[in-house]
């Protein structure tokens, strides 16, 4: 139940944050990378750093993580199969993987794990379509029902929570 409340909170905050639709969309796409790929991976530290340092929507990123993490559990068999195809089933790529595997730091990303590689490739492939779709969606939302929601009791409840204060620290700068 708490997870659902958090998810709603993320959605509301992301959609009504101060960022532009583009900032929300990029934040969401970056969050999707963290959500889709196994959390304890080196590349996720880099993505997390980018979310913090780049002027993208932090609630958007949290929304990406919240939405795509449960999805990732469902899609894991697919990621596993894709990763296996790339790592084992495509001999033409073996020299590339061999080079990367023997390059400092790269193996720390666990790229040679079927689930990690499959999910990371999926997240990267989805990155641009996700940015475009989210930017369009957020803009449409704000132009249509956004203002009505902003005046609703639910919105006031959400924005009154403590988490909102944390968000304010990372809200995008115009």
């Amino acid at each position: 139940m708490l997870a659902i409340v958090k998810l709603i909170q993320s959605i509301v905050k992301a959609l009504h944050s101060d960022g532009t639709p583009g900032q929300v969309a990029i934040g969401l796409a970056l969050g999707a990378i963290i959500g889709l790929t196994p959390l304890m991976s080196l590349h996720n530290a880099v993505v997390f750093g980018l979310i913090i340092i780049l002027n993208v929507s932090f609630p958007g990123a949290l929304l990406g993580i919240a939405v795509f993490t449960p999805l990732a559990f469902l899609l894991d068999p697919l990621f596993d199969a894709l990763g296996r195809l790339l790592l084992v089933g495509t001999p033409a790529l073996t020299p590339l993987w061999t080079e990367l595997y023997n390059t400092p730091v790269v193996p720390l990303t666990d790229f040679n794990n079927t689930v990690v590689l499959g999910s990371l490739v999926t997240a990267l492939v989805l990155f641009v379509p996700l940015v475009l779709a989210a930017r369009w969606g957020v803009a449409r939302y704000r132009a249509t029902v956004g203002e009505r929601i902003r005046r609703s009791a639910l919105y006031r409840t959400v924005t009154a929570s403590k988490l909102y204060n944390v968000y304010r620290l990372f809200r995008p700068e115009a």
């Binding site: 196994p38 990732a72 559990f73 894991d76 068999p77 990621f79 596993d80 990763g83 296996r84 790592l87 084992v88 073996t94 993987w97 061999t98 990367l100 595997y101 023997n102 666990d110 040679n112 794990n113 079927t114 689930v115 990690v116 499959g118």
Partner: peptide, 10 residues
């Protein structure tokens, strides 16, 4: 999550 398989490339 699913463990997957590690592939080593010696």
């Amino acid at each position: 999550r699913r463990d997957g398989t590690d592939v080593r490339f010696p």
